[in-house]
Design a binder for these strands. Structure first.
Lengths: 361, 361
DNA sequence: ATTGGCACTCTCGAACTCCGAGTGCTAATA
DNA sequence: TATTAGCACTCGGAGTTCGAGAGTGCCAAT
C-alpha cells in the first residue's frame, strides 16, 4: 500500500524529530516542524492511521508517537534523503585514512576507531581474507645461531620470524632448508601439512636439530592465522552516551556482546551487496541486537579480501548520517586498497606501494 | 600509631565483607564474621574509633561502615594476606600464556584480555620499548617489479614490507641499495635520518626511481613506531557489572578515560619497583581515576623493554586476588620474555625461540 | 573493659496525589 | 468530504508522605 504524500512527510518528521530528541513526538510538534498547512487535529488523525498501519506506536496512551522498526525501515528505504557529507567531513576522512593507512597491520582497529569517532557510536571492523597460501620462503642467515624466516603469502602479505638456536648451523643448511620448503610447502593449505611431510623434509635436508619442525610450525601458524578474520570494536564507551542505554544492564549486555570477536565475525555473513546495509532492531538475527540497529558497509581490500565496517546503536540511530559516513569510508578504503585501483592520492612519491610493515619480537 | 590487634581484625573484616557485598557493614555482621569473643556493642565502640582515625566512614548516620581510601591502604599494606593462587588458576594462566605468546604482535592486547577475564575487571596493557635502531637490512628480490624489505632491529624484532614497483629494477640495484642502507642507516635513531642523507644515498647507488626514498621512509616509519608505546584496554564492559558504576555517567566518564591510549601511557610513569603497585582512589593523579582504584604490575620483555599490565575497578576492589593474579601473569611473562631467562617451559621442541611472526599486506 | 538495652536517626521503598502533555472523539465549518 | 476547534479523558512522572528496618550512640549495669 502506498502512503499519501502527506503521510510520508509526517512520518519523516516524526522519525527525524525522534532521532534528534529521543522523546516521543506529539501532533503539535509535527504541525510546527513539518510545515504542512494543517492543524494538529489533522495531524492527529494521520498519526493515528500511521500507527494502525504499524509505522508508529505509543509508549503509553497519552504520549507522543515513536517509530516502530517498520517505520524506520520505510524511512531508511524511501523517505530519508541520502545525506551528502560536507567538504570538511570528506576531507577529514581522507586525511585520517591517509594517516592510518601507513600502518596496515592495525588497519582494522584504526578504521573502526575512525568510524566510531565520526559517527559517535561504537564501531566494529572486520577483515576477512580468503584462505591464503605461502608462495615463497626466504631464510636469511644472520649468524651461526640465528636466522630469519620470511614467508611471502599468496595475498601479498609478508610474515617473518626470528629464530635463535642453541646450536650452530651452517649457511649451507639454511640454503637447503630454504629450497626444500620452497619446493614442498608453497601453495598449500594448512591441513595439507602433515607430520609425515615434515619428517620426510627433515630427512631430505639431513636435519638433526629440529629446524624443519620450527619452520613448519611457523608455516602452520601463519596459515591458520590467515584464516581467522581479524575483528575489533572501537569506542564501545560511546554507547553509554545514548539515553536508551542508560540502563546499565542493557548497556552491559550489548557491550559484552559486541566485545566478543566471534560475534562480530557472524556479521560477516551479512551480504551488503557492495553498498550499505541497515539492520533495524528485530531484523537482526542475534538476540542481543534485537533492540538495537546495525549499519554495515563493505570494502574491498584487494585480492578477494573483503572488509566490513559497522556501527551499532539504538534503533533511533541517525541512519542518514551514519550511512553516508560509512559508505564514504568504505569507498575511500576500497579505492586505496582495492584491485586495479588508481594509486591512492596524496601519497607523495611516485611508486605504488602495496603492503606495509609489521613488527614482531 | 599502631592499631591494636583487635582493631586490625575488625578493620580486615569490614574491608573484606564490604569487598564481598558492596554493602555498608554493621557491627552485628562483624561480630558474627570475625570471631572475636565479644558483642556487637564492643565492636561498635571499636568501629567508632576506627572511624575517627579515618579508616572507616559512614555513608549516613545510621548505616554501617565503609572503608575509606586510607582504610584500604592499611588493608593492602598490612592486613591482607598475600593470596596464593590455586593450582588450577596457575595452570590456566600458564596455558593461556602459552597460547597467546605464539602471536607476539598482539601480545599487548592478548595479555590485557587475559588479565581482564581472570580478574573480571577492565584491564589495560602497555608495552614500552626503549628506542630501538635498525641493526640490519635485507632486501629480498622477488621479481623485476617487486622486492621485500626486511629490517632487523636492535631489540631483535623484525619488520618487513613488500614493495611493488611500476618500473623494472635489477637485482644488482637491490644489491647496491642493500649495502648502502646497511652501511649508513643501521644503528641510528629516527632523527638522524635527514633528507640530505637520503639524497646522498640516492646518488651513491645511482637511483633515479626513488627507491632510496621508499626504503628510507620505511626505516623512519618503523623507528618512529618503535618509540610509541603500544597500549590497549580489554574488557571495558566488565566495568558495568560493578554496582559502583551503575550510574551511566560515571561509567561513561571512566570508560572514555581508559579507552584513550594516551591516558594509559601516562600510567607508565608509575614505578612498580618490580612488584605490584596499588593506587587507591585519590592516590591516582588523574582526576578521572580519583574514585577508582588501579592495580599495576610490571613485566620484563627482554632487552630494556618493560611492559605494564593493570586493572581498573572500584576502590572496593578485591585487591588480594587481583594483585596475586597480576603478579603471577607478570612473573610468568617475564620468565618467558625476559633477559637470560630459562627457556619457557612447555614448549615442545629443543630450540629456544625468541621472536615471532607478524603479518602485513 | 564489656555488655544489654533503648531511644534516635536516617534511608529506602510503597502508596498516594497532582500536573501536564497528548490523545480520541464530536460537532461545527469550509 | 476533509479539516478544524474544543473538550473530556488517560496516563506517566515528579513530588510527597509514611512506615519499616537497620544501625548507631549512649547509658547504666556487670
Amino acid at each position: 500500500m502506498e502512503l499519501s504524500e502527506r503521510k510520508k512527510k509526517i512520518l519523516t518528521a516524526v522519525v527525524e524529530e525522534y532521532i534528534r530528541t529521543a522523546e516521543p513526538v506529539g501532533s503539535k510538534t509535527v504541525a510546527q516542524t513539518a510545515h504542512l498547512g494543517c492543524s494538529s487535529a489533522t495531524i492527529r488523525n494521520e498519526l493515528s492511521e500511521l500507527a494502525s498501519m504499524g509505522y508508529l506506536e505509543q509508549p503509553h496512551t497519552s504520549a507522543g508517537r515513536v517509530p516502530t522498526p517498520l517505520g524506520y525501515r520505510i524511512y531508511v528505504n524511501e523517505l530519508m534523503q541520502r545525506q551528502k557529507l560536507s567538504l570538511e567531513e570528506t576531507e577529514e576522512i581522507n586525511r585520517s585514512l591517509n594517516e592510518k593507512l601507513r600502518e596496515l597491520d592495525h588497519l582494522v582497529s584504526n578504521v573502526g576507531a575512525l568510524a566510531s569517532s565520526l559517527t559517535n557510536y561504537p564501531a566494529m571492523a572486520i577483515a576477512a581474507a580468503p584462505p591464503a597460501t605461502i608462495s615463497r620462503f626466504d631464510l636469511i642467515y644472520i649468524d651461526a645461531n640465528t636466522f630469519i624466516i620470511v614467508a611471502m603469502m599468496s595475498n601479498n602479505s609478508v610474515r617473518n620470524k626470528l629464530v635463535r638456536l642453541p646450536v650452530s648451523v651452517g649457511q649451507d643448511m639454511i640454503q637447503r632448508l630454504s629450497s626444500i620448503f620452497n619446493a614442498n610447502f608453497t601453495g598449500i593449505t594448512e591441513d595439507r601439512i602433515t607430520p609425515l611431510m615434515i619428517r620426510s623434509a627433515e630427512r631430505a635436508v639431513d636435519d638433526t636439530m629440529g629446524l624443519t619442525g620450527v619452520i613448519a610450525s611457523f608455516a602452520i601458524e601463519i596459515l591458520s592465522d590467515s584464516q581467522t578474520a581479524e575483528a575489533a570494536v572501537s569506542g564501545a564507551n560511546r554507547l553509554l552516551a545514548q539515553p536508551e542505554y542508560r540502563d546499565p544492564d542493557k548497556a552491559h549486555a550489548l557491550m559484552s556482546y559486541i566485545s566478543d570477536a566471534d560475534h562480530l565475525r557472524e556479521l560477516q555473513l551479512t551480504d551488503c551487496g557492495g553498498g550499505v546495509k541497515v539492520l533495524i532492531g528485530p531484523e537482526n538475527v542475534a538476540e542481543e541486537l534485537r533492540d538495537s540497529s546495525v549499519v554495515l558497509a563493505e570494502y574491498d581490500m584487494g585480492g578477494d579480501a573483503k572488509g566490513l565496517i559497522g556501527v551499532v546503536g539504538p534503533t533511533r540511530m541517525d541512519y542518514s548520517s551514519v550511512a553516508a559516513k560509512l559508505s564514504m569510508i568504505a569507498e575511500m578504503l576500497s579505492r586505496r586498497l582495492g584491485n586495479g585501483a588508481a594509486p591512492p592520492p596524496g601519497l607523495d612519491n611516485k611508486l605504488v606501494i602495496k603492503g606495509d610493515s609489521n613488527e614482531q619480537q
